[in-house]
Design a protein around this nucleic acid. Structure first.
Lengths: 202, 202
DNA sequence: GTCTATACTTCGATAGAC
DNA sequence: GTCTATCGAAGTATAGAC
């Protein structure tokens, strides 16, 4: 049948299912998020999963949207802090989130709808971070940085995620590496001058 | 039964299966590597998979070992190049490998044996890279760098993988970001001086 | 070394009663 | 909105013939 009944988006049970799915995915990976395991984890019947989500793909989509929105709104809070760049870095380093990110990246490798969603999120993140970076630079009196804010965002984001993945894997801090990078961000105008040198060269 | 017959490690069919598994994992993710799909992909019967590998876990272990060994031997070749650091970076940026790495990282999140294998590989990689870095620094006349070679390896590796994941996701180069980082590595002694400043701070 | 046959489990998804 | 019942497909793994 094509027109099956589907539960409302604002349903409490639906929220509960998404919550459980997030936890399950974090702890056991996306492959463990099956209708049966999820239901049992949430204390519900498997059929309810299909009542709220037409397919499992639809569930993953909804879950990613949830996680992505959470990250973007946290980013907005960070931008009001004293040192937004360090906050930005710490946010993307967060190991709980990084595990989820990793799972979604892996999912994106072979599910087109997730792939599109993840790239769209990446673009939005880059835009938002670029704006924050520009703002920080202006406050330091730098109007035209030698490196594009978009590239700076990419570099920071790249390092943060890499750190998070590695830390998460080793279950320990990565020597002094993370402190060094945080230091670079705390004295960003100095770092930027250094980076600019390499940007012009090649 | 506990003592099932298992095929020899040097069997051609076994190699063929691992080859196919690698490709399948790259293209469709680890969840697609099932005995049935793998066998059909390799033009064999599913039961042969279980003849060569006691369990699917054993197959993933063997596959990771294969990939890790390949990477380490490629790294050794790179260390003989003119600019080993750039080569190191490019190697870890390689998008074909990065997809596999990502899949294994995801697998490691919830399979203990893979987790242990991946961390062990990470440690060995760090050791090998540190040695290369030390060598490069010595040739530039720097005997005691302000930042530990292990941390430098971590930073470079982190950036490279992050780049690879992001590029792979977007299916396009990441603006100028990658060039900037390559530039930093090409003029490593300059970069190192800049990094040292932040290392001593706070 | 590769095949057939097969046991058992878990999966996604739907229909229909309540 | 949640339940029971149920399908067919796909998963891992083993035994035993050739």
């Amino acid at each position: 049948m094509v027109n099956r009944r589907i539960g409302k988006e604002d349903s409490e049970t639906r929220q509960h299912l998404l919550e459980a799915a997030e936890q399950l995915m974090r702890e056991e990976g996306y492959a463990a998020v099956t209708s049966r395991k999820l239901a049992s984890f949430a204390g519900l019947k498997p059929q309810l999963v299909h009542y709220y989500f037409r397919t499992m793909d639809e569930l993953f989509e909804a879950l990613f949207k949830r996680v992505a929105d959470k990250h973007l709104s946290a980013l907005k809070e960070v931008s009001a802090q004293e040192n937004p760049l360090v906050g930005m870095f710490e946010l993307s380093c967060d190991s709980a989130n990084s595990v989820l990110h990793l799972e979604f990246l892996a999912l994106a490798n072979h599910r087109k709808n997730i792939h599109d969603q993840v790239t769209a999120f990446g673009r939005e993140l880059n835009r938002t971070e670029s704006a924050i970076i520009l703002d920080v630079l202006r406050k330091e009196g730098i109007e035209t940085p030698g490196v594009a804010p978009e590239d700076l965002s990419t570099i920071i984001e790249t390092m943060a995620r890499g750190m998070a993945f590695a830390e998460n894997l080793n279950a320990r801090p990565l020597g002094n590496a993370r402190n060094i990078l945080t230091g670079c961000l705390a004295k960003f105008s100095v770092t930027l001058r250094a980076l600019s040198e390499f940007s012009d060269a090649d």
